[in-house]
Structure formats: C-alpha cells, structure tokens
Write a protein that binds this DNA or RNA. Structure first.
Ligand SMILES: [Mn+2]
Ligand SMILES: [Mn+2]
Ligand SMILES: [Mn+2]
Ligand SMILES: [Mn+2]
Lengths: 223, 223
DNA sequence: CACTAATATTAGCCTAGTCTAATTATCCTC
DNA sequence: GAGGATAATTAGACTAGGCTAATATTAGTG
C-alpha cells in the first residue's frame, strides 16, 4: 500500500536529522522536528519499521533503511523541482515557495516529476541553492560550501545556499537583498560577530547577525 | 477549519449530479458516484450540512448551498487549469490528465491557481473542451453545444467537448483521432445508430457507436 | 552502586472516514 | 389502505493518527 503524506513527513524529518547529526535519531528529536508528542512518534516508528523503511532499536533510536532513504530522495526531488517551477515560471518569490512545495510533493506522481524536470530543463539546484537529485536519485556532491561566518573581512564571495525552511531568516535575507547568486564584499566582522557586507547591487553595507550568517553558505569568487 | 479532500470530493459529486438531474440528489446516487456505501454518505451529509455547505431533507435528498457551490467551482477551476498545464506544457496526452488533476486540485493553494492562470494566459477551456471558471468563479455560458448524435449525414462539424472521466471512451476517441477541435464530415448514420465520420486529418471514415457519440458534443462549422 | 532526571513506550481515549447489519421511512402496487 | 420493495438512517466496529497519563528503561551524578 501507498504511504500517507504524514508517514512521508516522518521519513523526511528523520532523514534531515540523520544528515545533521550522523547518528541514530531519538524519538524526542523527531517529535520536536515535526511538532507531535513522543507517544505519536513511537507509534509511527512501529508502522515504518514494519514496512521496512527504518530500523528501530527500542530505547536507542532509528535509522532509515535504503528503501526509506529512496522514498525521501524522491520527495526531495519533487519538492525542489516544484520550488524551481514556482519561482521560475509562476513568479513566486523564493521566500514563498517552500510551504507550497512541502504540501504538493506528496501528491504529484512520478510521471509528473519526470515531465516537470524535462520542462524545467533538468535543473540541478533549487531556488535556495540546494541540489536537486537526478532521475537515478543521485544527489550531486553538495559542492564544497562554507558558512558565511568562516570568511574574513576583505574577501569577496558568492552566496550559494540560503535556508529554505525558516520564515524569519528567509524574510531577513530577502529584505537585505541576499539570495543565491548574490556577490558579497565582506567589509568587516565586528567584535560581537556581526558581518558588514556589501551586496553587488547595493551601495551601502548590510549588517548580518551571526545567528543568520551561520546558515548562509558561500563560495569564494573565482575572480 | 479546512475541508478534507474527501469532503471536497463529495461536494463535487453532488454538484455533478445536480447538473445532470436538476433536482435534489439522493443518498444512493452519491454513494454510486463516489463508490462508498449509503451509510458513509449519510454520515458525510451530516457533517456537510452542519458546515452549511448543503441542505439535507431527511429521506428526501440534498441540495448544495451557495457556499457549497462556491467550493465546487473553485475546485473545478483548479482542476481545469491543472489539466491545461499538463497537456500544454508537460506534454501529457489529453487522455491522461484527469486523474492527476483530480488529486492535485485539493492541494494547490488559491495563490497557485491565480498564478497558474496567468502563466497559462487565462485560458477559457480545458483540454476536453470544458469551460474554465474565471477568477470571479463565473462559468462562461457553456456555449451552445449539441451531441454528435443530433447531427445528420452530410453535415460538417467541429468536436467541442469530449468526456473527461471515462477512461474507455477517452481511449476510443484518442485512438480514432477525435479530440476538441477536430473537424468531422458526417458521412452516414447507419440503421443501428453507428456514425460514420471522416476526421479532417484522415482519409478513411471512422465508426463511432452511438453510446460514445452521445457524449461527444460538437458545433456546426461556421464555414 | 543507588537515585534521579530524562526519554521511551504503552494504555486508553478521541476524531474522521470507512464498513456491515439492523432499523425505520417512503413509495408503489394492488 | 395494506404489503412489500426500496432507500435512508442508525448502531456498532475498524483503521490511521493524534493526545494525555501511566509505566518502564536508560543514563548520569553523587
Ligand atoms: Mn524547500
Ligand atoms: Mn512535505
Ligand atoms: Mn477532468
Ligand atoms: Mn478530486
């Protein structure tokens, strides 16, 4: 039988946490990520385990199986293709596409994804700079990207990735003209950790709190 | 609170039956249309009545209220915009779009519909020739269209509408080269009611059983 | 090593939507 | 106008996913 959108959301959450922590994921972490109680998570873990999508060691945590990961990658591919379509063709702001894609990813068919990818000319990154898995569900090496906080005053970098899920961070970046592709001159790093940067299309410098800059990654300019 | 996709499907079914019969709709008719038991329908009727989306006269039948009709029209608009997108931009055959649209219509936001309509250049008919309600949810007068069976041998007509939901009928029409816009010369109507027609792009005539022709509507050619 | 805090699981209840079986209402025919 | 057929509703049970409260396990601290 087919997996429900809710079950799929659990798999995605577990995958995100695995990438973040590189170790088995605890019940309470999933509960926090999704916003349900630990009791609900325990029960969903049972059903996902029975379907062979994860391995559960009671009182220890869970790990996705190959099958579980495959489902997640399919979802991520659909999600990022949808986000790309929304920004590139429906004129959505890149700050507004995540929620729509997060709903639709569970309802578009594989056929739809294949055809949408062709329509979009097989894009490799989404509007937030995240890689789009290809048809074989291979994720291109997340090219070496470094948090903005690792650079030093005087350097010029290009914004590579911005967070897709945190509304406030998205709005902050949008309002200050930062998005994937924006070139930045790193003017100064203040004592309290605020970065003063000058975007390529602006005259004045913009202050970015560390709390936000930590989640923005950038590449050194090839120039 | 928001309506579930399932509740929305009930409203659509009732609306379809109302259009077809122009009288209050009975429980068993809804059950047949959706494929559930009468007991399930009775219970859903209660919830939709409580929400003011239909009026139920026990043992007599239901009628949609204005609010109920509005929800249906919004769904129909989304459905037909999606079908148009799928055929015109994702290269789906017009025979294959109904099912995808029937799922997605419940999950795309109003914002998405608005933007998709703009992207598509505000189309007024879908790939089956059905009218697309506009933003104000007005359905353009279903322009006078007559079933193919009403025409007589010797006339030339243009196919205006084909059925969107019946898989077998869709396949039959597709395989015989009939779709909205196809021009037909009505060669003969046989005693048993089979129509012999010649599509504009074919040399040979094609036989269409009455059972199918009844569901295809056409306009007399303006030529 | 025992105690406590944190975490996980289980038990039991709720809602939405489904079903079958039982009951009730309506309608049609004689 | 009564009887039987048909349709509608109600009762009661099941599943998925949620919750709270109770219980069990683990881990860390003294
Ligand atoms: Mn996203
Ligand atoms: Mn999602
Ligand atoms: Mn359709
Ligand atoms: Mn539908």
């Amino acid at each position: 039988m087919d997996l429900s959108p809710i079950a799929e959301e659990y798999l995605k959450a577990i995958s995100t946490l695995e990438t973040e922590h590189a170790r088995p994921i605890r019940t309470v972490e999933i509960a926090d990520e999704i916003g349900v109680t630990s009791a609900s998570v325990s029960s969903m873990i049972d059903t996902l385990d029975e379907r062979g999508l994860l391995e559960h060691t009671p009182y220890k945590g869970v790990e996705l199986t190959g099958d579980g990961e495959e489902i997640v990658t399919t979802l991520v591919r659909k999600h990022r293709l949808l986000e790309t379509f929304l920004t590139d063709h429906l004129d959505y702001r890149w700050t507004d596409v995540h929620e729509e894609a997060d709903r639709l990813e569970h309802h578009v068919s594989d056929e739809f994804a294949t055809r949408l990818a062709t329509f979009l000319d097989d894009p490799t990154t989404d509007p937030h700079g995240d890689p789009i898995p290809d048809t074989a569900l291979t994720v291109s090496e997340e090219s070496v990207q470094t948090p903005l906080t690792e650079y030093e005053a005087g350097e010029t970098v290009v914004v590579a990735q911005v967070p897709d899920r945190d509304h406030d961070v998205r709005e902050y970046l949008f309002e200050h003209g930062l998005e994937p592709g924006t070139e930045l001159y790193l003017e100064a790093v203040t004592a309290v950790g605020i970065l003063e940067v000058v975007p390529d299309d602006a005259d004045d410098s913009v202050s970015i709190p560390t709390k936000i800059a930590r989640h923005v990654s950038a590449r050194a300019t090839s120039r």
